[in-house]
Design a protein around this nucleic acid. Structure first.
Lengths: 339, 339
DNA sequence: CTGTTAGCGCATTCAG
DNA sequence: CTGAATGCGCTAACAG
């Protein structure tokens, strides 16, 4: 491995000069810079990151923590997309990205500890948010730079996070259904433990109330994320004497399952039941019918969180921030006007 | 930041002893080990990775390179799943995983260079395989440990890779259709540039030939991966005077699109047309109908590639290997017997 | 069984 | 504008 000394020797300068050339230090003559760079190229020199990290006390690397992958949630196209967003800014800032590999909560926690204590990364992005999460608490206690994608469960005002206004989105998309004449509207969401779900549901409830519509608990369904494609949810729904005419579903992937189950039961979407959902992943365009869904700009969610995290790592006393990514509703074919 | 010296001082031994305790060197008394460990805990000591990497000349990190994400291919649930597989073994080997962040081919290439030259990682996993790929050539030229998931386009016998027997799988799944009485079977695949596609297609062709069925070019369709959910593919198919009664589709996600377009056209699956596909991602279970598909064991593909790569990094002259992950066909509801 | 010494490759004082 | 010296935190060779 060719090192800084070799380059120094080859170009007839000292190692420190070479170091300065690497950093493009303005106090070095263009002439010597050229000379040195030529030598670097000839020898095929590339600075060693570990050595550099050691002295710089920074790795220019960001850790990205995925939720524990015990469940199938990870197959949600949401994740590749958010990784793309994160990757984009990380790349352009010349950082690198270290992805969590643990499957259980326990594994993930020990991994984060390694990342933090071992100075693997300068900051961490949490792709989930759980009540009383060990990782979050740990990061806070150690005053380590991190951001959460989504809404933190505790200490919301003390944790930098990037999120959508899920309440408003839930309200608006429900409102859309109401505008189309629907009155019996049910909500199907994932785990109650997720803030996204609850916020969207709260928006749904508010829209109903504001329209003077009845809000009944029978219409609020929570299905284990993705579980058997929402079969029970649909069965339950169909068993109701007052069948809803429209559904607000909190995730496109769940919608896909619902769609299948509905069709199985011979119920047409949007003919018999209208459906709206959230996220606007690629899927929602190719399902039949194509979904009317709120585009939460997943890519942007990732990009912004990376951006703000990097700022934080570079300036420890950046204020706590809360970034709200705007959403917009994509109208497609899963809603029908009720006359 | 508390370092090895502090621990040494606090426990009344030398730094090297502490170092040995960390490595659990058997030549150290249990007694002193205890003493030192206690001090480590008290001080909250954790070894600094960069320093260790510097002397060890190894980072215990693996780079994972995704295909350029200009297209939507990345939204394929295939990727999160293979990352899980890779992550699993990486985690248990106490390695870490660095994910590529570039979007274009160019960006990715420069990133790989950084990884390799900067000693960011000990080895690289390529999640794609392209003809005359710069990254592959670069890695080969520099004799840097890497493995390809899928079949290398060039120098197949010189590149360690892990793959399925896509030819055989293609043949077998087509055979299944034939056994069910189908004779007019079309193939819908992604880009011709991908070996997976071509191998599966070759298997399809062979099955047809072996059964004495006619192989006609009109039945071989290649659609830009995912493009508008395979709309043209379906339109084209329906325009044929000899409409196929069954479809072999090279990817579950494409199948989803096809399913939608077919239904749009009022064609029932499997009633009017049967369909089989590949990968067995979560989707294929919740579509309607659920897909008969070949499970290529994505997770295993990832896990094995990580395993063999780590072996390679630890022993530079591991022989070139080729690992074939067995597939198995999952029979669901998208095929109907033709009488 | 443990301590001393040296050095990994680089960036950064401090001199000049 | 450039060089010499020092240290980042750790491991390994060599003594003892």
């Amino acid at each position: 491995m060719v090192n800084i000394k070799d380059v120094a020797k080859a170009s007839g300068v000292s190692p420190s000069t070479v170091s300065r050339v690497i950093a493009d230090n303005p106090r070095i003559t263009e002439e010597t810079k050229k000379k040195v760079r030529k030598a670097m190229k000839q020898l095929g020199y590339h600075p060693n990151i570990s050595a550099r990290n050691l002295v710089a006390k920074s790795t220019k690397a960001i850790g990205v923590i995925m939720p524990s992958s015990a469940n199938t949630a990870l197959q949600n196209p949401f994740f590749p997309e958010i990784l793309r967003g994160i990757g984009s800014v990380i790349h352009h800032m010349q950082y690198s990205m270290s992805l969590s590999t643990g499957e259980t909560e326990e594994e993930i926690f020990s991994e984060v500890k390694r990342m933090v204590f071992g100075s693997y990364v300068d900051g961490v992005i949490l792709l989930y948010s759980r009540i009383n999460d060990r990782v979050t608490n740990f990061l806070r206690k150690n005053d380590f730079p991190f951001v959460i994608v989504g809404k933190p469960h505790d200490h919301e005002t003390e944790i930098t996070h990037v999120d959508n206004d899920n309440f408003k989105a839930g309200k608006e998309i429900t409102r859309h259904l109401i505008d189309k004449g629907h009155e019996k509207i049910a909500f199907i969401g994932g785990s109650r433990e997720l803030f996204v779900t609850m916020d969207r549901e709260a928006g749904y409830v508010t829209a109903l109330e504001e329209a003077g519509l009845e809000v009944c608990d029978e219409y609020k369904i929570h299905t284990e994320f993705l579980k058997s494609g929402g079969r029970e949810a649909v069965e339950y729904l169909l068993s109701l004497e007052m069948r809803p005419t429209a559904l607000v579903v909190s995730d496109d992937l769940i919608s896909l399952g619902i769609l299948g189950r509905l069709e199985e039961a011979g119920i047409k979407v949007p003919g018999d039941i209208s459906l709206v959902s959230f996220n606007n992943v690629y899927l929602s365009e190719i399902t039949r019918p194509a979904l009317t869904t709120v585009d939460v700009q997943i890519y942007e969610l990732g990009a912004q969180s990376a951006k703000i995290l990097i700022e934080k790592t570079q300036n420890k006393d950046e204020p706590v921030k809360r970034i709200i990514i705007p959403y917009n509703i994509v109208y497609r074919d899963s809603v029908m006007e009720l006359k």
